[in-house]
Computed example of a mutant assay.
Amino acid sequence: MPILSLVAPQHWRNCYLLMRHGHSQANQRGVIVSSPARGVEDFGLSDLGEQQLAQLVADWQWPIPNRVVHSDFLRTAQTAARIAAAFELVPSVDTRLRERYFGKLEGQSDDHYPSVWALDAQDAEHQRHQVEAVSAVATRMQAVIADWEQQVSGETIVLVSHGDPLQILLTALAGKSLSQHREQTALLPASMTLIGR
């Protein structure tokens, strides 16, 4: 897999808008929803999330996208649908953009996140509680961009994903140790980060 670096984004063929989904019902309830079995069909956007997206589209300040690609979780699919509709695009699914799987912590309080992140800071390969390793998340997320870099050129592609995967991706692209992913500024719901050419 090609190594992509934010150090020389002018060498990229495309630009990417990394978007975290809008505020979701899982955020609202304070629960971890990371398994496809629960996240694909349930826990979509909250009313606040819908408002965030309406505001984002109304005040759009980013390059006009050519494509919108998203995780198959309901909250990302709904987010992508709103963005795609605004630009008369048809969104597409890439399961590699899914939420990081939190294993045995699935369905529990999101108060458990900090304890996992503390383990991440010690070892990006750990799988305690059957959590997906940071390194595995980085690999699948980078592969999405690597594939688009090979397939198209001169496009603006919105990638709609989740907080942890996007922070891990940004850490990897910056050439930092993956164990430092929580040192990135936290990505808020409905936030957008522009990378690339």
Results as ranks from 00 to 15, higher is better:
Asp72Gln: 09
Val68His: 09
Ala81Trp: 01
Tyr101Gln: 11
Thr95Ser: 15
Gly107Trp: 01
Gln108Ala: 06
Lys104His: 14
Ser92Gln: 14
Phe87Asp: 05
Ser92Asn: 05
Ser71Pro: 12
Ala84Val: 02
Asp110Met: 01
Asp72Val: 12
Asp110Ile: 05
Gln108Pro: 02
Pro91Asp: 09
Arg100Leu: 13
Thr79Tyr: 00
Asn66Ser: 11
Thr79Trp: 02
Ala84Lys: 10
Gly107Ile: 04
Leu97Lys: 07
Leu74Val: 04
Asn66Pro: 01
Asp72Ser: 12
Pro63Met: 04
Thr95Pro: 12
Val68Gln: 02
Trp60Asp: 10
Trp62Met: 13
His112Lys: 07
Val93Glu: 15
His70Trp: 12
Val90Ser: 08
Leu97Trp: 08
Pro114His: 05
Val93Trp: 06
His70Arg: 12
Ser71Tyr: 11
Ala77Ile: 14
Ala85His: 06
Pro91Val: 03
Gly107Asp: 00
Thr79Leu: 01
Ala54Lys: 13
Ala86Tyr: 05
Gln78Glu: 11
Gln78Leu: 02
Gly107Cys: 07
Gln78His: 02
Ala80Glu: 00
Tyr101Val: 14
Leu105Asp: 06
Thr95Glu: 15
Gln55Ala: 14
Ile83Val: 12
Tyr113Gln: 06
Arg67Gly: 00
Asp94Tyr: 03
Gln108Lys: 11
Asn66Gly: 11
Asp110Ala: 11
Ile83Asp: 10
Pro63Leu: 04
Ala80Gln: 01
Ala80Trp: 02
Phe102Cys: 12
Ala80Cys: 01
